[in-house]
């Protein structure tokens, strides 16, 4: 039997703004570089996690988004991670490829896989749970809903964290949501699309 699922919380990071549950949480100067924007969020959220400074920008986006979504604590250690994006780790791939010309950088190379972000999140929140990373051209609600439902059917789990964390040429697009057995919003394609891309500001 499939259980009824809900979207409990969501986060959007886009165009120098952060929304939590559709409310504007932070707005920075649009002229900020990506790295300054990421640092500004870290500072504003009063985070203290030195590993942050070693991460590539893709992992930083995922880390910051999940800190904001979970308010710094994923209590349920069985929470599964279902993540996807469009450009994989291409941003860091290009940086690593540039380093190859002189001295290939092992610290960049390790980030040339998109699922490293899942490793970072698992370490930060001590999750030894199910992890999967998919690639699709654009945000694909059907993929998230399908795979999340499967995980709830197979496992005795109560939470899945769905994440769309994309970054290329400094363009970032982050949408995270916590899926659970209770919550305010039905977990369906229409609601996911609305939360991902609100038509009104």
């Amino acid at each position: 039997m499939s259980r009824k699922l809900y979207i409990k919380n969501s986060v959007v990071i886009r165009d120098s703004k952060i929304f939590r549950n559709e409310e504007l949480l932070l707005k920075t100067n649009e002229g900020l570089s990506l790295s300054s924007f990421l640092k500004a969020i870290y500072k504003e959220q009063n985070l203290k996690y030195p590993k942050f400074f070693k991460m590539d920008s893709l992992s930083k986006l995922g880390y910051l988004g999940v800190e904001i979504l979970s308010k710094g604590n994923i209590a349920d250690k069985q929470t599964a991670l279902v993540f996807a994006n469009s450009t994989s780790s291409l941003e860091t791939d290009e940086a690593y490829a540039a380093s190859m010309k002189k001295f290939p950088s092992p610290s960049l190379f390790v980030y040339t896989l998109p699922n490293i972000m899942l490793g970072e999140l698992s370490i930060r929140h001590e999750l030894r749970s199910e992890n999967s990373f998919f690639i699709s051209e654009s945000f694909d609600p059907e993929l998230f809903i399908g795979y999340t439902k499967i995980l709830f059917q197979q496992e005795k789990i109560e939470n899945v964290l769905c994440g769309w964390v994309d970054l290329h040429n400094n363009d970032y697009d982050v949408f995270l949501c916590q899926i659970a057995l209770s919550g305010g919003t039905d977990f369906n394609e229409e609601e996911l699309k609305k939360l991902y891309l609100p038509t009104h500001e």
């Binding site: 991670l81 390790v110 490293i116 899942l118 490793g119 970072e120 698992s122 370490i123 929140h125 001590e126 999750l127 030894r128 749970s129 199910e130 992890n131 999967s132």
Partner: peptide, 9 residues
């Protein structure tokens, strides 16, 4: 079944 080490990247 998949599981993460939550140990090192």
């Amino acid at each position: 079944v998949t599981a993460n080490d939550a140990n090192h990247i």
